[in-house]
């Protein structure tokens, strides 16, 4: 493999797909993961010769070990990892079940720890690497009904800052991108009422596009971003300015 390898989790649709397509354009060989065989096939189809879709459950350590082994053996060690896979299990805290909490923490936060650890050996050997976590504006602002999701998304930021300090000396950077409300399947589930209220709080008065998140990730993965680490970049149309 003469191309550098980039790994994007949750790449079958939405922001993950836009990121995978963008990194492929940037010249990476992109491995996109999905939780089902169908999802993996569709990733292989849209990436064509520029990459490959693989089935991966980021909440399952055995699945991660197996997939990472096959990537390292058959394709090459990734030097870019985009931790994008995520789910929601919204509920008011008073009604939130342990299961709803645990699912979110496992899939959205513990996965970031496991995936990052899994790619680190290859990056340390290569003496270069970029890890980019896709968080959410909700991790900074909070959101009623999303205590679990917001906690996981905020957790990614602290994780990234710590890891940035640990591995900076090896030329490995780790950053976070916090999208605001982006036009994807995840936000299509919102009611019109909620959407209208949201739009009135966004200075640019529109939802963001998945491609706009992908551009930011592309920048962080590029040589031009070599001196940025531990940072959290908000891409939210101005709805939240830290």
């Amino acid at each position: 493999m003469d191309k550098q390898v980039a790994l994007v989790t949750g790449a079958s649709r939405g922001i993950g797909r836009a990121i995978a397509e963008r990194l492929a354009q940037d010249g990476f060989f992109v491995i996109g993961t999905a939780t089902t065989d169908n999802g993996a096939d569709s990733i292989s189809a849209y990436l064509g010769e520029h990459g490959k879709g693989l089935k991966l459950d980021v909440a399952n350590p055995d699945s991660i070990a197996e997939v990472m082994k096959s990537i390292n053996d058959e394709i090459g060690a990734p030097i870019v990892l985009v931790n994008n896979a995520g789910i929601t299990r919204d509920n008011l805290l008073m009604r939130m079940k342990d299961e709803e909490w645990d699912d979110i923490i496992n899939t959205n936060l513990t996965s970031v720890f496991r995936m990052s650890k899994a790619v680190l050996r290859g990056m340390m050997k290569a003496k270069t690497g970029r890890i980019i976590n896709i968080s959410s504006v909700v991790g900074s602002t909070g959101n009623a009904g999303q205590a679990n999701y917001a906690a996981a998304k905020a957790g990614m930021v602290g994780f990234a800052k710590s890891m940035a300090k640990e591995v900076g000396s090896r030329n490995i950077t780790i950053n976070t991108v916090s999208p605001g409300f982006i036009d994807t399947d995840m936000t299509k589930e919102l009611s019109d009422d909620i959407k209208n209220t949201l739009l009135s709080s966004i200075p640019l008065s529109r939802l963001g596009k998945a491609e706009e998140i992908a551009h930011t990730v592309s920048f962080l993965a590029s040589n031009g971003a070599a001196y940025i680490t531990g940072e959290n970049i908000h891409v939210n149309g101005g709805m939240f300015m830290p």
Partner: peptide, 11 residues
């Protein structure tokens, strides 16, 4: 060596 060096050494 720092702590990360020892990890690399083991690798």
């Amino acid at each position: 060596a720092d702590s990360l060096d020892t990890v690399e050494l083991v690798m």
